[in-house]
Design a protein around this nucleic acid. Structure first.
Length: 474
RNA sequence: GGCCCGUUGGUGAAGAGGCUUAACACACUGCCCUUUCACGGCAGCACUCAUGGGUUCGAAUCCCAUACGGGUCACCA
């Protein structure tokens, strides 16, 4: 069996969202599962889209997520260059070969003529297909027009009859009638290849065995197949993937913060967790394990288990996965992840490193992502706390005022502020007030933190400091 | 509009004719644990698999229609 090679082929926009990574990840998992190679190719045949530094950006992202690129623009293998704009002569050469074989032809039709055709098609309510007008041109006519400097494109010559079919590894058998396929443009008038064409040439030349891509190409794949056939090349295996959408059913947008990988990383989501979660969008393993490392994913990944219907990217589930990984982090790593968020939001100038460390560790089991520390720990930084409806209702219960009075008294008696003495104060309050359990802890928690939920109470009190605790008990 | 693909709960999904009175997980609700909170554990949450026909002794699973959603029909990728 040939060595499996897959590729990720983005256009250099300098941007990646969760859907893009999911696509790359599937290609990556397939390559690694079979002990194959993963290639990065930059598809910059649309010159207007190019963004400076996009290649470095992509390498950086892959690096952050622990995905190794075997061959690409920055680490070339045998199939370079890996940037399409640097492969122009190649595309031209193969296109001319196709022309010689009669599988492609020069087209000089003007934008105006095409526009007119399109309009007519629309009026007649039929799909627009180029009418092969320039196919009728004689060799001499073509040469004369080229010599005269008339701009031209090269179009694929697709047969009017017959059916082109293939077996997609995810969607199964797909058959399209050739008469429904347009004589698509291979080489644009600016001498650049179109995506559709460059793709075929590159995938073949780069030895790609498994082509992964979004299912929007399901019905245009026969055009590619016809090209492979024309050249007498063996076609790759096709793996069309379902799309990633949002939970409301709309497309993933560039603007949304929750979808952008850089934002996710900046908000304190862990790369391993994102990878783990994304692998499950449109795929599931045979067993029920949901927390899987990249190595485990590679081992378990099975093309046959990719689903056909699109999956919704749900941040809530990502958070759940991420919280698993946060719990496994050692203290130093956790602090490294969380501390910057505190620093960016709150004034820590009068807090010791020890205090900050304790605060973060106090919240370990409560955090699902790094930035969450800001809202959950706000009680430590607020001057005033206010109680919501639920808290106020709880506080109306009988005896609570008395309990708090006793507790305040006990707290003010503490000379050395430490966990042990805080616990003694709580216990003394229990003895003197007769309150216990929820009726003992909850009033204190609400009065001092303003919340009914939060981390371990004695530790919270300790970190708040005696002054603030007393102040809030007033 | 033509063609292609899809449709299991709020979400991810398992399920490839009888083992399904539809797994598992997120979210949600309740209980247990915890002298509070969280973690963790347990339970509840689709009388049904878009709808309607058909095939079959038997269908979420096969077939056909319809509806809905997505894609495609560019000198964009």
């Amino acid at each position: 069996m040939k060595k499996v090679r897959t590729r990720f082929a983005p256009s250099p926009t300098g941007y990646m969202h969760v859907g893009n990574l999911r696509s790359a990840l599937f290609a990556y998992l397939i390559a690694r599962h079979y002990g194959g190679e993963f290639i990065l190719r930059i598809e910059d045949t649309d010159r207007s889209r190019y963004v400076e530094g996009a290649v470095e950006f992509i390498y950086d992202i892959f690096n952050k997520f622990g995905l190794k690129i075997d061959e690409g623009p920055n680490n070339e293998g045998k199939c370079g260059p890996y940037i399409q704009s640097e492969r122009l002569p190649l595309y031209k050469k193969y296109a001319e070969e196709l022309v010689k074989m009669g599988k492609a032809y020069y087209c000089f039709c003007s934008e105006e003529r095409l526009e007119k055709l399109r309009k007519e098609a629309e009026e007649n309510k039929v799909p627009f297909l180029y009418d092969k007008h320039c196919l009728k041109l004689s060799k001499e006519e073509v040469e004369a027009k080229i010599k005269a400097g008339i701009p031209y494109v090269i179009r694929q010559n697709i047969p009017d009859e017959g059916i082109t079919e293939y077996d997609d590894l995810v969607y199964g058998h797909i058959a399209i009638e050739n008469r429904l396929l347009e004589d698509q443009i291979l080489i644009k008038s600016d001498n650049y290849p179109t995506y559709n064409y460059a793709n075929v040439i590159d995938d073949h030349l780069m030895g790609i065995t498994h082509v992964t891509r979004g299912n929007e190409y399901l019905s245009s794949t026969p055009k590619y197949l016809l090209l492979y056939e024309a050249f007498g090349w063996e076609s790759p295996v096709y793996i069309h993937m379902p799309h990633v959408i949002k939970t409301d059913g709309t497309k993933i947008s560039k603007r949304n913060k929750d979808d952008n990988l850089i934002d996710l990383l900046n908000d304190g989501y862990l790369p391993e967790a994102i990878i783990n979660y994304l692998a499950f969008l449109g795929w599931s393993p045979e067993d029920n394990e949901e927390i899987l490392s990249l190595d485990e994913l590679i081992k378990k990944f099975d093309i046959k288990r990719i689903s056909k219907s699109s999956g919704a990217y749900d941040v809530m589930k990502l958070r759940w996965v991420n919280s698993h990984y946060i719990k496994k982090l050692d203290d130093d790593k956790l602090i490294e992840l969380v501390r910057p968020h505190l620093e960016n939001t709150y004034d820590l100038s009068n807090k010791s490193d020890e205090w900050i460390k304790d605060l973060i560790l106090l919240y370990r089991d409560h955090l699902s992502y790094g930035k969450e520390i800001i809202e959950v720990s706000s009680l430590f930084f607020k001057e005033e706390i206010s109680l919501d409806q639920e808290c106020r209702e709880f506080m109306q219960q009988e005896g609570i005022d008395e309990t708090l009075k006793i507790f305040k008294d006990e707290i003010s008696k503490i000379e050395e502020w430490n966990l042990e003495n805080i616990n003694i104060a709580i216990n003394n309050t229990k003895e003197k007030s007769g309150a216990k359990g929820k009726m003992l802890y909850m009033p204190i928690r609400i009065k001092v933190t303003g919340q009914m939920h939060g981390p371990e109470l004695p530790n919270t009190l300790y970190l708040l400091g005696k002054d603030i605790v007393l102040k809030r008990l007033n």
